[in-house]
């Protein structure tokens, strides 16, 4: 019997191309599937044989010399003779370069903002994944907002707004402390059908990079600001659910 996972997921697992959750799932499967176990061992043997045989062939000295001779020639532009008309052309080129630099700089800035946002989203998703490890989800387990809110008292230097939305399908399950990007955050845990939603609450700071919503590794996140707090909701549930939670939270 051939397990249907052997063709696809086994190789992704073997090559370290699976996320933590997928890998953990596959390892669980591995314990129960002797077929996959045998095939994984076979892949490991093949890899060991390939690397043991030292098949990698480095470029020979002759190629290095050839490249040294031929490449500078290819890179140097043909010599130009200057005339009055040419100097105008150089001026035009210089202006173009200045313009291109300016545009490039603008572009890089927007790119940088984008990658900062991506990095922050990755931290949030990591924190969410961390919380799903056994025993990590809640430090205070309660469906009562009047139990959860005082629990944060004295543990952090702000009082996060804690509300239960059980009537709207988001029952409060508890809370815990988390550290994201070196800053302490209150994490509120909500249930959404069979999914877990983490809402991280931190004091808004200038330069907070996360805004709007997005998706990373199959997890959705939605970020918003209210009354000096930045809220970031993250879950594997549909993004529409997170939008609904945001609206509930923003409503007075």
């Amino acid at each position: 019997m051939t397990c249907e996972l052997t063709q696809t997921r086994l190789h992704a697992y073997f090559d370290g191309e699976m996320d933590a959750i997928g890998a953990a799932e596959f390892e669980r499967h591995l314990e129960a599937c002797p077929d996959c176990e045998m095939r994984l061992a076979a892949e490991e043997k093949l890899r060991a044989a390939l690397s043991g045989a030292q098949l990698y062939e480095r470029a020979p000295e002759s190629l290095r010399k050839k490249l040294q001779i031929s490449l500078p020639k290819a890179a140097v532009p043909p010599p130009v003779s200057r005339s009055r008309a040419e100097s105008w052309r150089w001026l035009a080129i210089a202006a173009t370069v200045v313009l291109a630099t300016l545009l490039g700089w603008q572009y890089l800035r927007s790119l940088n903002r984008f990658s900062q946002q991506q990095a922050m989203a990755a931290l949030i998703v990591d924190a969410h994944l961390r919380s799903l490890q056994p025993g990590h989800l809640e430090d205070v387990i309660s469906t009562d907002q009047h139990t959860v809110k005082p629990w944060f008292d004295g543990k952090i230097d702000f009082a996060p707004p804690v509300r239960d939305f059980a009537n709207n399908g988001f029952p409060l399950m508890g809370g815990r402390l988390d550290v994201i990007d070196g800053r302490t955050a209150a994490a509120l845990v909500y249930g959404r059908r069979k999914h877990i939603v983490n809402v991280f609450v931190a004091k808004t700071q200038p330069g907070d990079s996360l805004n709007g919503s997005g998706e990373l590794q199959g997890y959705h996140w939605v970020a918003w600001q209210q009354n000096g707090f930045t809220f970031t909701a993250v879950s594997d549930t549909a993004s529409a659910d997170l939008d609904q939670l945001k609206q509930l939270s923003l409503a007075p």
């Binding site: 095939r39 044989a49 390939l50 045989a53």
Partner: peptide, 17 residues
């Protein structure tokens, strides 16, 4: 794949190449 091909023996460089 037969068990034989899965449990491959060790091969020298020439064979692998």
């Amino acid at each position: 794949e037969n068990p034989e091909s899965l449990a491959m023996a060790s091969y020298d460089r020439e064979r692998l190449q």
